[in-house]
């Protein structure tokens, strides 16, 4: 796979995002295109990842799980970043759209993160000999995942839409802030204790497949988030409509 192919996929993806955001008339079909495109890209990824790419030098065929594991974690982090951006935006200026997008991105992010961490664990078993290890990426993703599971539970346990939006935004920001601190502290802990390096010097053709995987799952991320966002908006709309103006028969004379 030539290295420009993932780049082309990325450009298409960005174009879809721009269409969704900037061209209202395109909103009916963007998610369908993203879902269809994602399916095709996934088919290509299966071929490139399982057949075309040579086995990894140290990990042999086990290493192929990286082509889906890493993209899942990436999609998860992108989703959480969208979520925290929405949280900040909501606190600065109340808007039900940002709250709906926050809800959508958190839920989809937890989905990708859970699959990603699970696959990372499957990969770790034959590679490191353990299911779980003090790898900064693994730990910080898991911590984020836990924080967002708490976030979603909190959302479902708070009834009032306004308080839910404001409070969950605060919870999201506090959780996201921990990401770099967790990363840093675990890496540091590791470097002091000299555990094995995470050893993933990926060769060039493999890197192209990895990037292709990233594009594939980011395309799915787009489709999922749009769909989930529409669902959140539909749920909101019934709750957010103002009550009708008073009927004229109840004209008041004081």
């Amino acid at each position: 796979m030539a290295s420009w192919i993932p780049l082309a996929g990325l450009i298409v993806l960005v174009a879809l995002v721009i269409a969704q955001l900037a061209v209202p008339s395109s909103r009916a079909w963007v998610w369908k295109v993203a879902a269809g495109l994602g399916t095709l890209e996934l088919a290509a990824l299966l071929y490139f990842g399982l057949v075309w790419a040579p086995p990894e030098a140290f990990m042999s065929d086990v290493g192929r799980i990286l082509y889906v594991h890493v993209p899942h974690v990436w999609a998860c982090l992108v989703a959480f970043t969208i979520n925290v951006a929405c949280a900040i935006a909501y606190l600065m200026k109340k808007s039900w759209r940002t709250d709906a997008l926050a809800e959508a991105s958190a839920e989809i992010g937890v989905y990708f993160g859970a699959i990603g961490v699970l696959m990372g664990s499957i990969w770790a078993r034959p590679t490191w000999g353990v299911w779980w290890d003090w790898d900064p990426r693994l730990i910080s993703t898991t911590v984020m995942l836990l924080a967002y599971v708490g976030y979603l539970a909190f959302r479902s346990f708070t009834e009032d839409p306004e308080r839910r939006a404001a409070w969950s935004a605060a919870a999201a920001i506090l959780g996201y802030v921990s990401l770099p601190i967790v990363w840093f502290s675990v890496r540091w802990w590791n470097s002091l204790h000299q555990v094995q390096s995470t050893g993933s010097t990926v060769d060039k053709p493999m890197r192209a497949v990895l990037y292709w995987g990233n594009v594939t799952f980011l395309t799915f991320l787009l489709a999922f988030i749009i769909k989930r966002y529409e669902l959140a908006r539909a749920r909101q709309s019934s709750a957010l409509e103002l009550p009708p103006v008073q009927a004229p028969k109840t004209e008041v004379a004081v």
Binding site: E159, P161, A239, L242, P243, V245, Q246
Partner: peptide, 13 residues
């Protein structure tokens, strides 16, 4: 002025 609590309107228009 309107104020919502959960799904009901405590004060309406």
């Amino acid at each position: 002025v309107s104020k919502r609590f959960g799904s009901r309107w405590a004060v309406a228009r």
